[in-house]
Amino acid sequence: MGVIDMTVQNLGLDRPLLTVNTLTKRYGIRIGCADVSFDLFPGEVIGIVGESGSGKSTLLSCLAGHLQPDLGRVTYCGRDVLAMPETERRRLSRTEWAYVHQNPRDGLRMGVSAGGNVGERLMAVGARHYGSIRDTATDWLGRVEIAADRIDERPSAFSGGMQQRLQIARNLVTAPRLVFMDEPTGGLDVSVQARLLDLLRGLVRDLGLSAIIVTHDLAVVRLLADRLMVMKGGRVVEQGLTDQVLDDPQDAYTQLLVSSVLQV
């Protein structure tokens, strides 16, 4: 056994971080998502693409514990997420997990300064030293390219792109292992999108994050995701390595999706 293999085993990198088995969520007679199964390994980024109404966001909400699925199992580090007490799930969701909303207004406290927004998760896990909370917040604002002198401004004074970066800083400050992102670049113009993607790619690589990214933008997954799942009508129609799926789509819907991308 080589050194790398042993390291991989010792760190538990050969075991999945998140295992999803036959997850199903129905809204009455309509299907939200059905029969979704996959493994997410440490440090891996999975992209979920599909058109509007294909069940991407429902799936993400079920995984993050915001919605209760009707069927299936979600296992995080060997623990059944759906069966664990709410106390534990909420503690997970503010320490080891992070959730980046499409609209930063959903994920930020708009009445609280940027520093307070970043510091909230620290204070939620017991940080009680103002000076060190502020230093950490300043450091994180720098990492997401927000000037340090704007730390006391409210998010409402920020542009859309800055709000989204602030939301990312707020989520990553407690060094989570698993990040859920729901259309992180939605509603941003292309140049801002490009910078945000660049930033995200750097952070994901530097921090060794695992992430599940829901998007309808194939360029986003091409840049960020290792593996790709294509959803249609609540079901996964194709999954595989990102480049493989995008360059050689097998399913008719994936072929349509790939060929629909506008070329400039």
């Binding site: 909420r90 406290r109 609280v112 300064s113 520093g115 307070g116 510091g119 909230e120 998760r121 620290l122 204070m123 939620a124 896990v125 017991g126 009680r128 103002y130 909370i133 502020r134 730390i151 006391d152």
Partner: peptide, 15 residues
Amino acid sequence: EYGLMHVKLYEDIAR
């Protein structure tokens, strides 16, 4: 979950 209470005090000191 009382971290939020300290956010209020943080805001006080920051401002």
